[in-house]
Write a protein that binds this DNA or RNA. Structure first.
Length: 276
DNA sequence: TATCTCGGCTA
DNA sequence: TAGCCGAGATA
């Protein structure tokens, strides 16, 4: 388990927003409830795989809220989850629906998880179509502080990752065999889950330091943050994941942040170099 | 060289 | 704000 923690995707009506969808929760190290650890052990999915680096947040588990008792239930596989998500609007989820993987499942079972146990949840849209057979829909959560919360990729049966609808369209026109097999654009959705608390996503144009008083701004941000938020920001600053991607600018930013952390007095000096 | 990741641009 | 994709770093 890495420093960044895991995410939980939950599907069902959200108490806070009264919407139907899926949620993603950030968890801090050691906070995952015991029953959730158990549930995770049963989950088979790329998205639920432990991230070796511990730097890239991942989806921790899939959960659905029962439309009757409103308790959250773990979904053991992404396949089940995707099926439920696709049809949850027309076919609400009930505890009894879990009998497919837990024969004795019922509303009288104790609560498995509550969104309140976690600091952050992200809402997935209901009605997202099941990926075509042999294709996989990947949700890749971005690190805290990124301009976007996550990315969606579709992995083709040949292993190619497609990151937008136009790319899928292009791929299908280059590979008509998939079209012949019934694959079409309507089976793809690149809608990412929306965090209920936008704190993990940097606002557009927002920098980590204000122009007026960089060091104070930074301290304020960290001081105002909930423990998990400062945790995430600190993680990103101290040891960002430059596994592929990233730019020289980012690398310099990292060097800068690292320096800023070890040498707080140098905030102003370095910031002037990076204010643009 | 392919892949991964981040972030900027645009609607 | 979401979708798209360019570009740099890494494997």
């Amino acid at each position: 388990m890495g420093d960044q923690g895991k995410f939980v995707v939950i599907d069902g009506p959200c108490k806070q927003t009264n919407e139907l969808g899926a949620l993603v929760a950030i968890k801090n190290e050691g906070q995952l409830p015991e029953n959730m650890h158990k549930a995770q052990n049963t989950v088979e999915s790329h998205n639920l795989a432990e991230d070796n680096t511990g730097l890239t947040p991942t989806v921790g588990a899939f959960t659905v809220q029962c439309a009757k008792c409103m308790k959250w239930r773990f979904i053991p596989t992404k396949e089940y989850y995707e099926e439920i998500r696709q049809t949850i609007l027309e076919k609400p989820f009930f505890c009894s629906s879990a009998s497919e993987w837990r024969p004795d499942a019922s509303c009288s079972d104790p609560l498995e998880i509550s969104p309140d146990m976690h600091d952050l949840w992200a809402f997935d849209k209901p009605g997202i179509p099941l990926p075509p057979k042999g294709w996989e829909r990947l949700l890749v959560i971005r690190p805290a502080g990124s301009s976007k919360f996550a990315d969606i990729y579709y992995v083709t049966p040949s292993g190619k990752k497609l990151r937008s609808a136009p790319e899928v369209d292009r791929f299908l026109s280059e590979h008509p065999e998939y079209v012949k097999a019934g694959v079409n654009l309507s089976q793809f959705s690149f809608i990412i889950p929306r965090p209920l608390d936008g704190s993990t996503c940097k606002k557009r144009g927002e920098s980590l330091f204000s122009a007026e008083n960089p060091s104070n701004s930074q301290r304020k941000t960290l001081a105002k943050s909930k423990p998990h938020e400062s945790h995430h920001r600190t993680l990103r600053l101290v040891r960002p994941s430059f596994k592929g991607g990233g730019s020289r600018k980012k690398l310099e930013k990292f060097k800068f942040h690292k320096k800023a952390i070890t040498e707080p007095k140098s905030f102003g000096d370095v910031q002037s170099k990076h204010s643009h």
